[in-house]
Simulated assay, not measured.
Amino acid sequence: MLKRIIVISFCLLAYYSLYSQSTQAIHVMVALCDNQYQGIVKVPKGIGNGQDPHTNLYWGCGYGIRTYLKKSADWKEVKRYKVDDIRLERIVFKHKTKNFYLVADAYDGKNIKECTIDFLNSCSGAKKDTLMVGNTVIGLNGNAKLVSYIGHNGLMDFSLQNTYQSKDDQKRDAIILACASKQYFAPYLRSAKVNPLLWTTHLMCPEAYTLHDAIDTYINGGDDAAVRISAATAYNKYQKCGLNGAKRLLVTGF
């Protein structure tokens, strides 16, 4: 019996080692836009209901994560379900040509603090998880290659004690699309030893096209500077702010 347990354990370790080398994962945590529970400039009621992902500005609307990626020529939806009362919907996408999975979680807007904490714990490696899709094990949170936070910058409304020191010395990449995220998140990302692949210096609209094009360059081997240019180009395309303005807004590194 003991021998059988040892053999099974060895096989599982080998399996998890194989998935970590061959399958890359991106985990995106979205705090749904919420007029009632977030300190935001109010938006129309339908798109600002943080308890309804289907019509939410950052999820179900035309430029929301769910809708935009589902329409993308690069990604295919393979799974969708509700995780719990905080993560109202999870969607798993598989890239059509690269061995990358993208997992996006829609957090109830009133739980923006929990979403922020989960993101920072993922950055530091304190929170790690996996997900099975068919026979494939996908890394979530700190097991993902790239972690991302999308939504209102909750650190403008609440403070968090900086307890996010790196737990495993792995240097993950991070994207934070929220207003002035560099100014507010920098101390936490330094402690977590994360590479800030893309974040912001001013107010911005965290719609999906910026993330989509940044990730496209990322998974095709582009360096940090190239990722920034792709993101800025996409942002300017939709926001008409001028490329130089978009490049001042979207930056990389400390």
Rank of each mutant, 00 (worst) to 15 (best):
P196I: 08
F93I: 08
Q36V: 05
N220M: 06
W199Y: 11
S17K: 14
G221V: 00
G253W: 01
L18F: 15
G151K: 00
C11D: 09
Q38E: 06
A174T: 09
Y19T: 15
V30T: 10
A31P: 06
L250W: 02
C115E: 06
V83Y: 15
T67M: 05
Y81L: 10
T200N: 03
Q51K: 15
W59K: 01
W59T: 00
A226Y: 01
V83D: 14
I229N: 11
I40D: 00
N49M: 02
G221A: 00
N244C: 03
D85R: 08
V41L: 11
K167M: 12
L2Q: 14
L177T: 04
N135F: 11
T217E: 13
Y188M: 05
G154H: 13
L203T: 14
A31N: 15
S148Q: 07
L160W: 07
Q51V: 11
A14P: 06
W199Q: 11
V78E: 10
L140E: 05
D84G: 09
L249R: 05
A234T: 05
R248L: 13
A144G: 00
R80A: 15
D52L: 08
D84N: 15
R4M: 14
G245R: 04
C33M: 14
D168P: 03
Q38R: 03
F158A: 05
Y209T: 04
I215F: 09
G134D: 12
V78Q: 06
F93Q: 05
D223C: 07
F100R: 07
E89D: 12
L32E: 06
S17C: 14
T217L: 11
I6D: 11
I117G: 07
S159N: 15
V7P: 00
I5E: 13
A246Q: 06
A225P: 07
A234C: 01
T217V: 15
N220Q: 11
I219Q: 01
D108S: 13
A73P: 04
H54M: 12
S230W: 10
K193H: 10
G64S: 04
K193Q: 11
Q165G: 11
L198N: 00
K96R: 14
Q161M: 14
H95I: 08
N56D: 06
S122I: 07
D118T: 04
I47Y: 05
D224I: 08
A180P: 03
I6E: 15
K171P: 04
M204D: 07
T210M: 09
H212D: 03
I138K: 04
Y16C: 11
V43A: 01
Y37H: 14
R66C: 12
L198F: 02
Q21H: 11
V30A: 07
L102G: 05
I47G: 02
A232F: 09
Y107H: 09
S9F: 14
K70R: 10
Y81K: 10
D168W: 02
L140A: 03
G48C: 00
A180E: 15
G125N: 02
Q239P: 01
Y209Q: 13
K167S: 09
Y101E: 01
D223Y: 04
R190M: 09
S166M: 07
C241Y: 08
E114N: 14
